[in-house]
Design a protein around this nucleic acid. Structure first.
Lengths: 185, 185, 185, 185
DNA sequence: AATGAATGAGTCTTCATTCAT
DNA sequence: AATGAATGAAGACTCATTCAT
């Protein structure tokens, strides 16, 4: 079961949902193909399960660290840092996120809903910052997506451009852009 | 040819490279399947051609407007505005960009190379701003990707969340995050 | 598996490698098309496997009978007789042999290599006969191919000219030409 | 027209009737595909025309030389020599002969009929030899096919085994086998 | 006479899913 | 619980042939 799970992450991230085959996953997991169907109703089912677990883990991992921070600024800094760390640890999963989150398929809509949950948490941090006077914006939603998009795409680019890049080292530069702003004070 | 081109954009953006079928594209274009193969060597070939044209158009559209600006700040503002406008005009293509830009397939690598060209142009603007003293950062590359990622993902989210959303209205909020910074002055 | 094998021999000999279709073979074998692909990687793979088995069988069948003969003359007579018998028993396969043995495709080269093995065995018999003084020639290779060619083409012609022709009855006439010679003593 | 003819021989011998494409032939002939259809009704038509011309040429070439010989032995020797020479000169065509002469397709039957004409001429020589007392056999037909088969297959083997082999040098060895016989006198 | 863009029927191949064991 | 042989629907691609120019 854990073997199948891991094999699926592997296969889906390496080749995407469509190109990954059940044979491939079975081989990676060292089980017979039928065994996968014993545990999961379908390929889609396996994929959705896996994505659910993944986004859940992302949310928990990042937000648990956030809670111990007091200021909104510190919280947002933590989000940047922890999301980078997560992408580093689960490179494969991070690829899946951006590859399969946009589209009209039911599965993609479900997936987007999970993502929205996560980004909404970021949005709450920003709204909190606005209330405390730390941040300044009147539209927290696009800002939250910008934060998420900036972190994700930057991470993804560096992962593909440079196999063993240390994503966390990007942290200060992302803080610079997203929190301080590019403008010279 | 133009019919095939348009049909392909349609199909690929609606269902992604894998799920879109040549039959589907042929039907949308109102030509026989063989006709597509008369003009393009393969599904992949058609896709690559289409993506090349698209990124080329994105680069030209955005950068032509940028050139008339004098300050780096004005240029970056223009990038944000024009890229949003482009995503609005070519919604379908913008979906393709993020869906198919990351992966190990040759096609995806080619695509990434084109994207890098575009983002490098953004990077140059930022470097220019650092030289003129407008901007402050010592790592223009991740910053450029952050800018691109923030715009793209935010645009994509709003396109899927709200069919007829006016993307350009996001412009000021993205400028706020990316240029001014979230922090209250 | 045996069903597929037999169906393939049938189809390939009836219509040749190119014209025979996997649908046809599947239908003849009474299995789903996918089943063939479960056992063989491709049409080519199936064909090569089948040809390998066939030439192997030809060699074994003919040469096992040859071994019990003592003189080279008796051995060559046996080759003629047994090869005719084999062509009679495996008419379909004998058609394949001459149809697909010459050409530049990899498959045809592989096939030729197998054929060469068989003909080399004939060549050894001739060389043996030369040593014992029974035969007289200084170039055993073309002689061996002549023997093989004479038997094969003659058999093939009679098979096509006359559906139920008894090939083995050709034996004495082939011996006459190939061993005794046409010339009146 | 001559260009198309030559291109077709090229293509058909290189890749066989099925694999050779009209596009390929058109390209080799440096004409548009439509032009071929202006001159020939179909691919089959082109092929049949070409094979007819070829066997016709083979028969004429070989038999014209034969006529000037007086004894049956000399005639048969000439057949061997001239057919080898023909195969040397028209290597490509000789490949086609054996590849496409056996099968149930109408075209293959037509083709076989042409071949039968040629081999019948050989048969007549043998019958003549029997009458003059030069040869000894009571079944001229299989003998004639043996002669044809021995020459053809031996030639074909040497053509594929050795690109620039001089086929005519095989002449004495084939005479040895087919006329004198292998047996030591 | 010659062209070459367009066609669509026909093939190979893949792969998620099922089911008897 | 687990297996893996069998399935067949679906999809990419090929290519002989046509026809308007």
């Amino acid at each position: 079961m854990r073997l199948i799970f891991q094999a699926a992450i592997d296969a889906f991230s390496e080749r995407g949902f469509e190109r990954a085959t059940m044979d491939e996953i079975a081989a990676k997991a060292n089980v017979a193909k039928g065994t996968i169907y014993y545990h999961f109703k379908s390929k889609e089912d396996l994929f959705v399960f896996l994505v659910e677990e993944g986004t859940e883990l992302l949310r928990e991992t990042v937000l648990s660290k956030v809670q111990s921070q007091t200021t909104a600024t510190a919280k947002l800094t933590t989000v940047i840092h922890e999301q980078l760390q997560f992408f580093q640890d689960y490179k494969d999963f991070c690829i899946i996120i951006l590859r399969e989150a946009f589209g009209e398929e039911k599965r993609q809509q479900d997936f987007r809903r999970m993502l929205v949950q996560y980004v909404t948490s970021i949005q709450h941090i920003i709204e909190e910052g606005v209330e405390t006077g730390e941040f300044h914006t009147d539209q927290a939603e696009p800002v939250a997506w910008s934060v998420f998009g900036a972190i994700s795409i930057t991470a993804l680019h560096h992962l593909f451009a440079n196999d063993h890049f240390n994503l966390v080292s990007l942290s200060p530069h992302l803080e610079k852009v997203l929190i301080t702003g590019l403008h010279t004070p």
